[in-house]
Nucleic acid binder design. Structure first.
Lengths: 370, 370
DNA sequence: TTGTATGCGTTATCAG
DNA sequence: CTGATAACGCATACAA
């Protein structure tokens, strides 16, 4: 049986020329041969060089058009030593903040003729490492990075950056690498959210947030603390819950919220510090049978279109994800195409937007509590 | 001031050699020169060829290891005439069905050493065309396609496919191209959803769905009709609302739902046919102040994690997006790496999953209505 | 066992 | 105005 197949294969191999093989496209060489010109003449004609006679130019251009000539980007890459592609390193596409950011990234990249290669770390340092290695080894011209929540050693990126690979960070940044960065005003966003809860009459406000090493976590925590301080509310360490945000996030959140509810001084409101944290928290709150805002008021960072379809509608801090992606990409392309080494870097800070809805509604019984 | 900067730059330019320029990596040629060997020897040693002496092999391997040699993928691509990357053509990343599918695609692709390049059409035929052109012209080895809702001319894809570019369709497929396809059992999913509503006591069930030319729309409509027929409920054309799903989807949906509510025989339930349609419908229903399920019962296709955080929890048809992505990718890589032309193609159909929740709860007053 | 030469598709340099 | 040649990094047929 195997023998027959083998013979058949041999037969097929002889019979069929390499037609099926690959989408064969026309090359400069083909044009040159067909027109009895040299490849260099064709190349120059195609690029509209002034030193080619109008007739030749016309001839070549028409032939190219007719046979739908497209320059081979891979050959160009090899020659110019750049791939015209940029790598994006993020944790999760299935997260509206990042998918909006990607929209922004693409809107700029495609206009400037760059491919976008996206890789997800799923919040794992291991995977981030693998992805960065995969993307680097000279197949991308630059990297757009938002760190995974597990990452605290950025040696892999530092090394690439030192070797001259342009890198721009957005959202989850690091201070250890001096380059352009694009972030939201997390401090102010968190301040606004916390302040809204306080102004609505809540005093015992818990904060569910990402892993402690992320820049966004630190900045949002600072904004939360500042709002408490400005309103003369003491900061309570037990009210802050860090979640590593990995695969078992739902369990993590459930544990965190249960912990909070078991405290002697139960919190009366929660401020949640990210997209996934927000949805997971809401899910847990529902499971526990708690009513928002009466049992627990709620405000969260999120870019999902959830704000108004929930009951009650969700008060949320929205990040300018699309713009962040755009600006980061502009920065990166600028670095890639810069003729001279860049030594002066910028950290661009964009404003967040607070959407006020019922989930942080005024407390109904402010008098009853002490 | 500018003058000083210019002088400084000039100075810098003279001072710094072309180090900043580009992440320079070591090549086979470098190794050969350093070790006094020829490039071919090095190349062979690196690939562990049997015809190289153990000593030379060791020498080369150690040197390569020490200087962290990585073969240049672009040079390889040029040589082997393939890029080891696959293009993904979808409408929106910010759609859980697609982001889950992408997870599946990546899980397979990365294991097999392929890059994944994603492009979004945002439901526009124009953009789909541009993206496909961009991806093709020999920079990807194959295409994973889910058509935009605007697309009814697939000439661009047909041409590429005829030229030998492997293409696999998933979710939104076409019959006009003979190749592997991966779809959900949309017929059954729609049947189940409609049947659930009927079994819960609803009889006037509207269907909000995608643009009519999409395969998923046709299949889901068929399932909806079949469930009605099996339950002896007459089909009412006025109950089916097609939405083109473009930029102004919210307005479209609002109009559609208002139309439905203005009918003499107002529907008592809605079955919605996609992720975005579902969230937009819920949003509109909320805006109009309608209560689910008392005023209007609801079941929708969706892959969002919404099911249980809404009030009432949402009954939903979930698609096996991750698996669809995986299988489509396996098909594609199989086509790409096949040594012979493939003539026998498969259409894989995966099962959907119905999640039953309160939004399709039993009707409370079945007696009152005729 | 190792080296030389060639080609993948393109552009730049130099020579006519 | 046009053509020949080299180079980008790698693999391989062919020589030695």
């Amino acid at each position: 049986m195997d023998y027959i197949i083998a013979v058949k294969q041999l037969f097929l191999k002889i019979e069929t020329p390499a037609v099926y093989k690959m989408y064969e496209a026309i090359t400069i060489k083909d044009i040159a041969k067909a027109l009895g010109l040299s490849t260099s003449t064709v190349s120059r004609a195609l690029r509209g060089s002034y030193e080619i006679s109008p007739e030749t130019k016309k001839l070549v251009l028409e032939y190219a058009e007719k046979f739908n000539y497209r320059p081979n980007p891979i050959a160009l890459s090899l020659k110019e030593r750049k791939s015209r592609s940029i790598g994006v390193v993020i944790s999760e596409i299935a997260n509206h903040f990042f998918s909006e950011a990607i929209d922004g990234i693409e809107s700029i990249a495609y206009n400037r003729g760059y491919h976008v290669i996206i890789s997800q770390s799923h919040e794992s340092y291991e995977r981030e490492l693998v992805n960065v290695k995969h993307l680097s080894s000279r197949s991308v011209d630059g990297l757009l990075v938002s760190l995974s929540s597990e990452t605290n050693d950025i040696g892999h990126l530092k090394e690439l950056h030192d070797k001259g690979l342009p890198i721009v960070f957005f959202d989850r940044v690091t201070e250890e690498i001096d380059t352009h960065k694009v972030i939201a005003d997390n401090y102010k966003g968190a301040y606004d959210a916390t302040d809204l809860l306080i102004k609505s009459g809540y005093k015992r406000i818990a904060h569910i947030t990402n892993s402690a090493q992320l820049s966004i976590t630190r900045e949002r925590l600072a904004g939360y603390k500042a709002a408490l301080a400005d309103n003369k509310i003491p900061f309570n360490e037990a009210y802050v819950k860090y979640c590593n945000h990995g695969g078992k996030i739902l369990q993590e959140i459930e544990d965190a919220i249960k912990d909070l509810l078991n405290l002697k001084q139960k919190p009366d409101a929660i401020f949640s510090g990210s997209d996934r944290l927000t949805t997971s928290s809401l899910s847990t709150i529902k499971t526990l049978g708690l009513k928002i805002p009466d049992d627990l008021a709620f405000v969260g960072f999120t870019n999902y279109g959830l704000v108004d379809i929930l009951d009650p509608p969700l008060s949320a801090v929205k990040q300018p994800a699309f713009e962040m992606g755009q600006i980061a990409t502009e920065f990166l392309i600028q670095l890639i195409e810069s003729k001279r080494p860049v030594t002066k870097f910028e950290t661009r800070v964009l404003q967040t937007r607070l959407c006020i809805r019922d989930s942080a509604a005024k407390k109904k019984t402010p008098a009853a509590k002490k």
